[in-house]
Design a protein around this nucleic acid. Structure first.
Length: 490
RNA sequence: CGGGGCGUAGCACAGCCUGGUAGUGCGCUCGCUUUGGGAGCGAGAGGCCGCAAGUUCGAAUCUUGCCGCCCCGACCA
């Protein structure tokens, strides 16, 4: 176990915080609720960005950039949207400071009050649809498939590194379509991309589903989401894709002439994932030794550590390492040879485990004699010695295996922690133990609200693949034709 | 905004109750010995004890006020 790291099973949130800190991912900044993402953490985020961006481009999307500031009048336009975000907006009211006439420092210059307040974007639907008005005239302008990578600000009461920060990084896609069917297809396509990314890149299995009306994005007709289960039994919403209908087109007057020469409002979608994915990644796989990274997202996939006593010995080891290092690099594998002499090898072992590096190779004089090298995998902590000439091949196979294996492990965990529950008593007992609960729900907001206030459990989603099944609501006993997923969530 | 807790070296903390030389561990610097799972010994550097006022011969310690941070709720990607 990593020295000084709290045990995952004893205090999950402390464990989480320590992993974030000790693995050099991020830290709280001096600015309230904001975080500093450190280079190692950012390198992981960049890998996520690149993979997602490639998927967006492959489905015809283009990147663009829209303003940070949203005039208050924009935000007001769509009523539900405005109401949903009003409580968490940072507002710019002035544009100038001046020296404090009563002493040191600066004060807001009262003469520099803005005529209209500017909101720092909590999301960009309004600025973007205000722009789309000028971009869309004809059905030939559609579909318009735009994404932007940016930061947003939501003034949350309580924050947690990566999971909920006042400012966070994300991508938000905003598309416009000429008809409803195509917009819904887009919404589902993007959800699918998110699910694929979560499972194949992050190794995090997700449920795909619809949000209940209560949990829907403010201003959306339908919100699709992917939900992941963390190791402490709590759910994490990992991505959302919204079908916005014509709501934003209507309030921003985005009309186009269709093929029948009729004026029509455009149909909208929006979808996003954020740096919260970093939190999901950490919580889904890591253990008492630190972070566990899927090879596809690891900034360093293989670390090579020399074991030596004297400089001469190091020189010999380095010479033996060199061809392996080059070959791995040539194979497109990100490899680091850590021959720094300010730490001992045992310290390095622990350090790279803490940082989640998937594979460690260790080579010492004993190996030189035997023509072997030690290969250790981070996910299982198992070690084996292989002959030096098979090392590169072993690494290639192992990287694949680890990627699969951590996904399978997370999947088994989710399966073992998903429960079909029939009675309210069982529900209350099970929710305390964590996990996903599949239960019948009468479909009313009242029941949903009562369950939430009595147990802190929310409907995470109505799974897309769930089958019709007659049953009785676990709370009210009312009729239900489908099970929904309940859990406590981050 | 309610309820708890904490501000002392780069980091983690003790000391405060009962006022009197500023401490410990980690980290850092130097030296020697070590080196196949977070090395050992020795020597050293490093402090406006959160800020301000008060009580006192004397305050890290007592009193009051302020500021900041963390945890638990309400809010949430």
């Amino acid at each position: 176990m990593a020295k000084g790291l709290p045990k995952r099973s004893e205090n999950y949130s402390e464990w989480y915080n320590e992993i974030v800190k000790r693995a050099d991912l991020a830290e709280n900044s001096a600015v309230r609720g904001c975080m500093v993402i450190k280079p190692y953490g950012f390198a992981i985020w960049e890998k996520m960005q690149r993979a997602l961006d490639d998927m967006f481009k492959a489905t015809g999307h283009q990147n663009a950039y829209f303003p940070l500031f949203v005039p208050k009048s924009f935000l007001e336009k769509e009523e539900e949207h405005a109401e949903g975000f009003a409580k968490e907006c940072a507002v710019v009211t002035h544009y100038r400071l001046k020296s404090n006439p009563d002493g040191k420092g600066l004060v807001v210059d009262p003469n520099a009050k803005l005529e209209e307040e500017l909101i720092i974007r909590p999301t960009s639907e309004t600025v973007i649809w205000n722009t789309y008005k000028n971009w869309i005239q004809s059905w030939r302008d559609l579909p318009l498939l735009i994404n932007q990578w940016c930061n947003v600000v939501r003034w949350e009461m309580r924050t947690r590194l990566f999971l909920r920060t006042t400012e966070f990084l994300w991508q938000e896609g905003h598309t416009a379509h000429s008809n409803e069917r195509e917009a819904i297809e887009e919404t589902e396509r993007m959800l699918d991309i998110y699910a694929t990314f979560a499972e194949e890149w992050m190794g995090v299995p997700v449920l795909r589903g619809l949000k209940s009306p209560n949990e829907r994005f403010a201003g959306a007709v339908e919100t699709y989401c992917i939900e992941a289960l963390m190791q402490d039994g709590k759910a994490l919403q990992a991505g959302t894709s919204h079908f916005l209908g014509q709501n934003f087109a209507r309030v921003f007057d985005v009309k186009f002439v269709n093929k029948d020469n009729q004026l029509e409002y455009a149909w909208a979608t929006s979808w996003g994932v954020s740096t919260r994915l970093m939190g999901a990644l950490i919580m889904a796989h890591s253990d008492d030794n630190g972070l566990v990274l899927p090879p596809k997202l690891a900034p360093i996939q293989v670390v090579i550590i020399p074991i030596y006593k004297t400089p001469e010995e190091l020189a010999k080891v380095s010479k033996a390492v060199q061809p392996i290092f080059e070959e791995l690099k040539a194979a497109g594998i990100s490899v680091k040879y850590d021959d720094s002499d300010n730490q001992r090898s045992g310290w390095k072992f622990a350090e790279y485990e803490l940082k989640g590096v998937p594979i460690r190779l260790a080579l010492g004089s004993r190996d030189l004699e035997n023509g072997t090298i030690e290969v250790a995998r981070r996910d299982t902590l198992s070690k084996e010695s292989v002959t030096i000439d098979t090392a590169v091949e072993t690494v290639k196979i192992l990287l694949e295996q680890i990627q699969q294996s951590i996904f399978q492990k997370a999947l088994r965990f989710r399966e073992a922690n998903t429960f079909r529950v029939e009675t309210w008593d069982d529900f209350k007992t099970q929710i305390e133990r964590g996990g996903f609960i599949l239960a019948h729900w009468d479909g009313t907001a009242e029941t949903e609200e009562k369950i939430k206030s009595e147990t802190k459990a929310t409907i995470r989603c109505i799974p897309l693949d769930s089958e019709e099944e007659a049953g009785k609501c676990v709370y009210s006993g009312g009729p239900s034709n489908m099970r929904v997923v309940f859990a406590r969530a981050y």
